[in-house]
Design a protein around this nucleic acid. Structure first.
Length: 613
RNA sequence: GGCCCCGUAGCUCAACUGGAUAGAGCAGCUGACUUCUAAUCAGCAGGUUUCAGGUUCGAGUCCUGACGGGGUCACCA
């Protein structure tokens, strides 16, 4: 019964075959648009040329044929090149019954495939920000969607916990930290460490500014300035200063070497500070109500890629230049030459990713992987996938880059140097605060315990934030207006929650009225009811699309449309006070199914439903 | 400059993948709570889908070329 449209399509194809002895495979069937009174529409135009008959004649012939064969087709009309088909109400009652009888409606059957999803993937030197939030929400949501679409899913991340940037915060803490800890300062661990990362930059800039006045610096400037102003020259020279003259730079590079040589003091410091950051990350993920099954750390995987480099060289998939660096030729994929290993034998970004991929295969034997990473890395992933393909990895045919656009502020790009980065924890706090204000004003939660109130406010605030981000197609760059993100009216998460809460409220009342049981006498659907059933029927299809296109926004927009249709229905139709008992029971049943699907769809987005609001 | 992505109402986004008169929300204006929760509903207004060509019965969607925005072209990640 979930396949009304495919049934109609098949019948239409049969009709074409029987009436015109022509086979038509790419028939288009779609829901009839609102301004016409029918249920499904078959587009006739493509047939006109082949059959050399008028659209009207073809439509009428096919319509009549179908009307005669299927009892639940009750009418048809050919308008211009469109054959509009009307179905009997009974089929929609059957559909609703069928949905109600389907346990876990929307859940597709097991595909027997395991997919690994990578998201979040932060650096352990500063707290998460708005960009990470988009990443995490997309990763979490697509994981849920894939599970519902029948895949087994493993949620992972790769944590960048090594390298020069990490050492900067370690140096700053050793020099200026006075043995303070997140606990002693009562600061969240990731923010605590991030502050030292910022402090390093500040101290380094001071050091650099002082150095610029020295004779050495002036000589360098005079010899190399090439007409640049002093300011501009030293801006460009910063990196070289760090590597060749800076005291702090020297300390930092020394620390990285010591780290790679397993110096116990450095390792201890590194472990301590890393654990602070990771604790902080955990808190943020908790606050967002998401989780990750398995962490991979670059500190653990950065060496493993090297065995793959050996393998690639042996199989002549990679080649070595005279200086010792290793490359792969991806010219036939239009991706040029890609470096796989540095001339000094140390690994680069892609080396790690090759290693991590194999490590994951060893751990999980997955059939494929999805990397949730910003679109500035499109090229990297093309190269990575092509390389894994060249290496003939068993999972190489099912690798996807869920490439999402940057998040801008109304004022423009987020820039850490200009302090315009929106901190994840601040943002979460803010949206919950906004929800709290709102529920307080409206007084709807007054009879609940403080804990329940807090819980509901968190659900509402997070719904606003998450929906605001997930409703946008992932590949599009989006503008994040903090003011709009806490909006709770119109096309928002709370609007959809509100539809759910209205249904719960009705159900509570219905229970008190002892309105239970089934009644099948209700037989005439109004447009609002029919519309809701049609939308419910769309749900599995929507999951399919979202899963195929890796697009949570499909679910977000679907949920909005369903909630909107319910709000309309709620306003236009008496549910409990209708004198016809069979109507009441039918509408309760319909409402219940709507609430189930809304709840499920929101689950797919990682958003929870409150019972009251 | 080469390659990749984006361009739809004042703003934020849709448009079932080529189908009928391009839809929602916000902001603005008007109306609906003694009635199942008004975080709601209805209405008004808002568009040469950046531009110019092309493909065809039919283009916001496909192709070409401009223009505008962003990304990327590291032995960074």
């Amino acid at each position: 019964m979930h396949h009304i449209s495919t049934k109609i399509k098949e019948l239409a194809q049969k009709a074409i075959l029987d009436c015109y002895q022509v086979k038509e495979n790419s028939l288009i069937i779609k829901p009839t648009s609102k301004e016409f009174d029918a249920d499904f529409t078959i587009v006739i135009f493509p047939l006109v040329k082949r059959l050399k008959k008028s659209p009207q004649e073809i439509g009428d012939t096919l319509g009549k044929y179908m009307l005669d064969r299927l009892e639940w087709i009750v009418d048809f009309k050919t308008i211009k090149g469109f054959l509009n088909i009307s179905l009997s109400d009974r089929i929609w009652f059957d559909v609703l019954d069928d949905i109600a009888d389907t346990p876990h409606f929307g859940q597709q059957k097991n595909k027997g495939e395991k997919l690994l999803v990578e998201y979040s993937s932060p650096n352990t030197n500063k707290p998460l920000h708005l960009g990470h939030i988009r990443n995490i929400l997309l990763g979490w949501s697509i994981s849920n969607i894939l599970e519902t679409a029948g895949y087994e899913v493993v949620r992972t991340q790769i944590i960048n916990d090594r390298g020069i940037a990490i050492c900067k915060s370690m140096i700053a803490w050793s020099l200026y930290g006075e043995n303070k800890t997140p606990k002693s300062q009562n600061i969240k661990g990731d923010l605590f460490v991030g502050n030292y990362y910022v402090l390093f930059d500040k101290k380094f800039n001071e050091e650099y500014a002082a150095w610029q006045k020295t004779n050495t610096a002036q000589i360098i400037f005079n010899n190399n300035s090439k007409k640049l102003t002093e300011e501009l020259f030293f801006k460009k020279y910063k990196n070289e200063y760090f590597n060749n003259y800076s005291q702090l730079g020297k300390l930092t590079r020394k620390m990285l070497q010591d780290w790679e040589n397993n110096d116990p003091d450095v390792l201890n410091l590194w472990k301590k500070m890393r654990s602070w950051v990771l604790e902080g990350f955990d808190e943020t993920l908790d606050a967002l109500n998401v989780s990750i099954d398995k962490d991979y750390f670059e500190s653990e995987t950065y060496l493993t890629g090297k065995s793959i480099v050996e393998e690639g060289l042996q199989k002549n998939i990679f080649y070595k230049k005279d200086d010792g660096s290793v490359w792969i030729d991806l010219e036939q994929n239009n991706l040029g030459q890609k470096i796989i290993l540095r001339s000094d034998g140390t690994s680069v970004y892609i080396t790690q990713d090759l290693g991590t991929a194999d490590l994951r295969y060893k751990d999980y034997k997955m059939d494929g992987m999805i990397y949730v990473v910003g679109n500035e890395q499109d090229y990297h992933f093309q190269a990575l996938f092509a390389t894994l393909k060249a290496l003939n990895r068993p999972y190489a045919d099912k690798l996807f880059h869920l490439s999402y656009g940057m998040v801008d502020l109304p004022s423009g790009k987020m820039k850490s140097r200009e302090g315009t980065v929106v901190d994840a924890d601040d943002l979460i706090k803010e949206v919950i605060e906004e929800a709290t204000q709102s529920t307080k004003e409206r007084g709807v939660l007054d009879d609940l315990s403080p804990k329940e109130i807090q819980d509901i406010n968190a659900k509402i605030g997070l719904a606003a934030l998450k929906f605001f981000i997930l409703k946008v197609q992932s590949k599009k760059r989006m503008v994040f207006d903090p003011k709009e993100s806490v909006d709770m009216q119109g096309q928002t998460g709370p609007y959809i929650q509100n539809a759910f809460v209205r249904i719960r409220s009705i159900q509570r009342k219905a229970n008190k009225m002892n309105l239970n049981g089934a009644d099948s006498k209700y037989s005439i659907l109004n447009v609002y009811e029919k519309n809701l059933i049609k939308l419910l029927l769309d749900y599995p299809h929507t999951i399919q699309i979202a899963s195929n296109t890796l697009e949570p926004s499909e679910i977000a927009n679907y949920a909005y449309n369903l909630a909107k249709a319910y709000h309309r229905f709620y306003h236009e139709v008496k549910i409990l006070s209708d004198p016809d008992r069979s109507a009441v029971l039918f509408r309760l049943k319909l409402s219940h199914q709507v609430s189930d699907v809304l709840k499920n769809a929101f689950y797919l987005l990682g958003i929870q439903m409150p019972q009251k609001m």
